[in-house]
Design a protein around this nucleic acid. Sequence first.
DNA 1: GTCTATAGGGGGATAGAC
DNA 2: GTCTATCCCCCTATAGAC
Lengths: 190, 190
Amino acid sequence: MTGPRVRAAAERLFARHGYAAVSMRQIAAEVGIGAGALYHYTPDKQALLRDMMRSHLDDLLSAWAQADPGGEAVARLDAFARFHIRFHLDRPDAVFIAYMELRSLEPETFAEIEALRKQYEAVPEAILLDGLQSGVMQVTDVKLGSMALIAMLTGVNTWYRDGGRLDRAAVEDVYARMALGMVGVQTVAV
Amino acid sequence: MTGPRVRAAAERLFARHGYAAVSMRQIAAEVGIGAGALYHYTPDKQALLRDMMRSHLDDLLSAWAQADPGGEAVARLDAFARFHIRFHLDRPDAVFIAYMELRSLEPETFAEIEALRKQYEAVPEAILLDGLQSGVMQVTDVKLGSMALIAMLTGVNTWYRDGGRLDRAAVEDVYARMALGMVGVQTVAV
DNA sequence: GTCTATAGGGGGATAGAC
DNA sequence: GTCTATCCCCCTATAGAC
């Protein structure tokens, strides 16, 4: 069971201090083994980062595949906004790493991770395109709308703390409404 | 004139590789001097980071003080969205560092920088509050609206490249419209 | 599967010559 | 104001004992 503990320690430390600032010795100390023993669980430090980013994005894509209600664009965008916030708030460390450590990846790995990210960006793009074509949404540019939406939703991770003024459900409500307004869908006041 | 070149080199390298990953020797090499000579221009590495973050946020606040048209909330939010995108696209390295290297700051410096960031977050908060009170905007939560707006606008820096499909003016138009829609202001189709 | 020891390389920062 | 030399520390990764 040491392997998963190594990955968990690496994830927490990378998120807190950054990949470059964390040493293999720190990770080993967190797990309670010597630095040399780490190399039974990973070929090197880079592989730790690569594997956590890859599995994070794989999880994200398959979780949406499960959560996607399909159907009409407005309901689907509402579902997407709530899904994105929930999924990201559940994994703050993995999310932080996935967005901040792209530059720490070696080129081939970077390309692979970028491809997964683009797959996810295609999700709101498809919803917005559908909403535009069916006339229920007004969005000037589907790609920009998708990027704006993802940035807005992911931003929740930078300030949300459990036990704060609003709970997760309330945050979801507020953001889902803003997400719809952003693409021209007006909702009743809450 | 070596001081400014040191700061410029540090900014570029920190943005590209991260504070922790950049060595004083690399910065010196970029400037064309030896590592020892750097210490005539900065007391230490941390001061390079602190000064660039402080001056970036000072510039941001004073630039908005200049750009703020005042007056009615809808026009002011439109101006804010355009200002934010323009200011941030002009300084991608400084912006990246200001958002990513907060964790590399020593505690007192972190508190000081956070205070400046909160001052800036108060700008859209005030606009949204005004728009809410005058009835021209519908936003469920002023604080969340402000955070969502800033995250959405800053997100442009992650994908915009000069020479791409849309120029800066077009991006401003699209985002200003989404920003208004987000807070319940419907605009005519573009 | 973990340890200790070590190879081989950099790191930040300082001292003193010029 | 810059250089070279250096202090002392830490790094990743490997080797070989247990």
